[in-house]
Design a protein around this nucleic acid. Sequence first.
DNA 1: AAGACTAGTCAACAACCGATGACTTAGACG
DNA 2: CGTCTAAGTCATCGGTTGTTGACTAGTCTT
Lengths: 226, 226
Amino acid sequence: MSSQQTMTYAWVVARTRSRNACKTRADLLSAARRRFGTEGYDRTTIRAIAADVGVDAALVLRYFGSKQELFAAAADLNLDLPDLTAVAPGRLAGALLARFFAVWEDDETFLALLRASMTSESVAETLRQVFAAQVEPTLSAVVPDHPRERAGLVGAFIIGLATTRYALAAPGLAAMDRDQITAWATPVVDQLLTGPAPPVPDSAAVRQLPRRRPERQRASLLPSVP
Amino acid sequence: MSSQQTMTYAWVVARTRSRNACKTRADLLSAARRRFGTEGYDRTTIRAIAADVGVDAALVLRYFGSKQELFAAAADLNLDLPDLTAVAPGRLAGALLARFFAVWEDDETFLALLRASMTSESVAETLRQVFAAQVEPTLSAVVPDHPRERAGLVGAFIIGLATTRYALAAPGLAAMDRDQITAWATPVVDQLLTGPAPPVPDSAAVRQLPRRRPERQRASLLPSVP
DNA sequence: AAGACTAGTCAACAACCGATGACTTAGACG
DNA sequence: CGTCTAAGTCATCGGTTGTTGACTAGTCTT
């Protein structure tokens, strides 16, 4: 793969700033974020991260203890959302989206967390805590009612944008630039934050009437030729 | 893990419907969907799938050739979206959301595809083709303008709902039921589908004037392919 | 009932990965 | 210059996984 590049890089660096533990540690964290962000948790190997920086794999474990601890150190996410109570009501969505674009594109911390959360329950829990500790309070402060529902929907939309654009690289979203996406997403976020709540019963009162039919048995009993 | 349970299951079944290749194959596909959908591609092992059904791991490879081919067979997704041109304009979002909820909850095909697409470029390509072949045409047929943008945004919202509710199990979305989520999501989808397009320049014509800051040379990787 | 076909099993290989502990060497200090 | 500490390396282990080929045993046909 890129063994030659890695070797050269390691050689140059080795002569340039050899034996600098602090820098090496920071480089390892950066390389780990890049690997975890692009390949996910399982496909990322300690050996690959070490090779990116040009050190031995054993050193990585010596610094961070284990792969999980390395990931926890690399995926420590701080959204640093603005205080929306100090923002003009008409610019709520714009401020939010601008901050999220920065989080997404500054480094690969968010992407690493997002990718890993799809296959690891513990990482998913980490992401849920990020949401509960940073997103929910920020949004609840500027919302007229139903804070849990509104925050959840806005969070889903934000996660959807990130997933579709950065992880999935779907052509629709990947082809648009920041300003276009912001323009389209702003009214959506505005509506979810401050628009009227939908006329829906919160309990199971009306959930009885138009129940759908069996929805066709998708048991897939017809395999193709073996 | 559940070796005893599995053994018992295999024993009972072995006496009940032994040597039924068609049924065994279907069971393997079902177990594969469940495993891939809950644990992702990498954490799912051939041995675990085989143990779920109660057969030897070698048989799985004998039927499907390789792990990748097994996944391809298990994650063959057909959204079966309704023809929206035959739906009353006021019920577009409702019809769409109802169908997507069915896709999400009927079986784990979609979840398997979604989880695996986060860490596999080839699976991501598969999901992009599903979108391009099934979602985009369906939405473009009922949209007044900007079909690519509107379809992309609706797709992002849909993916966000699925990710947040089923893969991430975020408390906000997981606590709401189908009808509540549908009620909140309907105006959003309606607005994205048929609402007014935002006043934004489509090309690089006006993108010059209010140029932001130097953008922090963190070139990053937007749509990259490893 | 005998053979043939095929569903299913068994054992093992080769590769890879995370982790461990002993070893080596660079560089600061006296 | 010698030494000591920390940075970094090396060899290796134990475990897992995908994959393979040879083998066993039901079931159907004639």
